[in-house]
């Protein structure tokens, strides 16, 4: 089962929820929990879990390389590429690796086999353990503009038998879609502020489009007015988690402490989540 923790707005508490859920579920569900930190531009789950890193691998993507001696400058490669990553001129072919989506189409349409694929480095994937919890995170190479290929590779490290929690990047664009793909359930984290509500609406549109069951979790829930809850009620979106706005929680967070380790009284807020999600994802098994 794969559960994604996402949000439209950044800084709403995705990582707080994801790390605490991982910590809590390995105790509650008694199953190996794998936490995938897919916020590869700024992975930070490890700050709260302090895992022992035991392996690391380089993630690469394929990009075209053109042998000009074999090229007839027919232009089929640049006509095919929707991203403008390969440009065929009169007597030269330019490759723009930062635009390439590694589909391999140019190598297939080339009539003279002048294009081969070479590897470009995307970043690094690190794997660590903490009790019965495995943390896998991707770290995008500095200067690399596209994170989805690395997010895909991070997700390939987990096996579907595990209970997978996925900490998504913020927003509603390609990196988030790549992270959400294949998830059984999405927990959208938001906060009762105008920005929180605005960006939640965008995120709801995305998960509805992807047809993934979802619910909302409200962080700092005692802030603000009732607009957020009114919206959820109107849209028939269940709110399955609330964490109050407390200075002590923020203080613990800023010291890199897990909320549930420091304040076990909040375990009761997290306890209904697993049974709820299991019921939504596979109702016939119960």
């Amino acid at each position: 089962m794969q559960i994604a923790i996402a949000s439209g707005k950044g800084g709403t508490g995705k990582t707080t929820i994801a790390t605490n859920l991982a910590y809590f579920w390995q105790k509650q569900v008694k199953k190996k929990v794998v936490l995938l930190d897919c916020d590869v531009e700024e992975p930070n789950c490890h700050l709260f879990l302090n895992p022992t890193w035991h392996s690391s691998l380089k993630a690469t993507a394929k990009i075209p390389s053109v042998n000009l001696e074999q090229c007839t400058y027919c232009g089929k490669c640049s006509d095919l590429c929707q991203f403008g990553a390969i440009s065929c001129l009169k007597d030269n072919v330019l490759v723009f690796p930062e635009l390439c989506h590694s589909c391999g189409g140019c190598t297939l349409v080339c009539p003279t086999e002048a294009i081969t694929e070479t590897e470009k480095e995307l970043g690094e994937i690190n794997i660590g353990e903490q009790n019965n919890l495995q943390l896998i995170h991707g770290h995008l190479k500095i200067g690399e503009p596209m994170s989805p290929p690395l997010i895909k590779k991070v997700k390939e490290q987990a096996t579907q038998e595990d209970l997978i929690i996925l900490d998504c990047p913020p927003g509603t664009s390609c990196p988030v879609i790549q992270a959400l793909k294949g998830s059984d359930f999405v927990l959208l984290i938001t906060e009762p502020t105008p920005f929180g509500l605005h960006d939640l609406k965008l995120a709801v549109e995305v998960v509805r489009d992807l047809k993934i069951p979802f619910a909302v979790g409200i962080n700092r829930s005692t802030l603000g007015n009732s607009a957020l809850k009114d919206y959820c009620a109107q849209e028939r979106i269940p709110i399955i988690l609330e964490i109050p706005h407390e200075r002590a929680i923020a203080t613990a967070y800023s010291a890199g402490e897990l909320l549930l380790k420091k304040f076990p009284q909040y375990e009761k807020n997290f306890a209904p989540l697993f049974p709820y999600i299991q019921e939504v994802v596979s109702p016939c098994k119960n």
């Binding site: 640049s78 991203f83 403008g84 440009s87 065929c88 001129l89 330019l94 723009f96 635009l99």
Partner: peptide, 9 residues
């Protein structure tokens, strides 16, 4: 994306 490349082409 790639508008500049296409225009140049």
């Amino acid at each position: 994306q790639g508008a500049g490349i296409q225009a140049a082409q």
